[in-house]
Design a protein around this nucleic acid. Structure first.
Lengths: 181, 181
DNA sequence: GTCTATATGTTGATAGAC
DNA sequence: GTCTATCAACATATAGAC
């Protein structure tokens, strides 16, 4: 009944988001599972194979999540997306985009491609609800939906990063600014 | 007339901001300078010593820069700070905060301390010009100066990260949003 | 599917000569 | 200040046994 492959992805996701892609090894994962690092290579021959799967896991999680919000008002969907990020605050881990974007140039091509895909998926979704919400009068920001989406996603991503370095609660302030419009 | 120590810091700064702290080695630096990696250890015995000096270099550069803007109107100082970030776009390198924050937990204590100091220095400066500019009527944002400063700095930092992953010009959109108020 | 064993390279660092 | 030489530790795998 155990799912080693799934566990590996979950642990790798956590390690990438707390310590960074270039700061974890297969041994870090195998220790947590009480197996040898060769066993991890059985599932993911190369580290970039694992990295790619972690991003795909995040994409799939994203799809599931926003789909479950499908019938909610647009402003509530935006609040949910903000709150989803806040949940990561306790252990101070960042989102996969914030973890991988700074080392983009060091990543294998398959990881770069998948990361680009994920960014576009998130932004297209954000642009969509921001545009529809503006049409329906729920939102009244002044920029284009695309510019607003960039601002929202940038703020959320960086709030998690700054939270690691600063003592203050950056997230709360950012959240208010976004919703204030 | 050559300044090897200074060159090392400059190259390290560039490597950290284009590839990340955990993805460069002393050999990367020594190759660029046509010396051996042992020579780099002469100046900076441990990698964290070098990392700490790079952050201090950035702090000192920041001080010089904002001091030279001292007599400008507050809105012009803000524009300069935004534009300063945009300059890094060509080679797609990020700011030192965006590069180091995601791997904060893997850094030695001296680097963590120095990075925290830098973040606070930047934010206190931003809060100051945002507060004074609001008092004098140049700015009319609705949040507290601190919340607005968090939003501005987050946006700038993340715009550089997203620019690495996305094809679109994230920076331009962000810049407009910030200044629109 | 997990193991042992092994290969191969890189990294961060030190000792001592020039 | 820079070099050569050397180091232990670790990372990223691969081969083949169980």
């Amino acid at each position: 009944m155990k799912n080693t492959r799934g566990e590996i992805i979950r642990i790798a996701d956590d390690l990438i988001r707390t310590r960074g892609y270039n700061a974890f090894s297969y041994t870090d994962i195998s220790k947590q599972l009480n197996i040898k690092n060769a066993a991890v290579h059985y599932y993911f021959p190369a580290k970039s194979d694992l990295g790619t799967e972690v991003i795909r896991f995040r994409i799939s999680d994203f799809h599931q999540r926003v789909q479950s919000w499908d019938t909610l008002p647009y402003d509530q969907q935006l609040v949910n997306w903000i709150t989803y990020h806040q949940h990561k605050k306790e252990n101070k881990c960042v989102c996969i985009l914030g973890a991988l974007a700074p080392v983009y140039d060091t990543l294998q091509e398959n990881m770069q491609t998948e990361l680009g895909r994920f960014s576009n998926i998130i932004l297209e979704w954000l642009i969509d609800i921001l545009a529809k919400g503006k049409q329906s009068g729920i939102f009244n920001y002044k920029e284009s939906p695309r510019a607003k989406a960039y601002l929202v996603q940038s703020s959320l991503l960086a709030a998690l990063l700054l939270n690691k370095v600063l003592d203050d609660d950056v997230f709360q302030a950012i959240q208010n600014s976004i919703l204030m419009q």
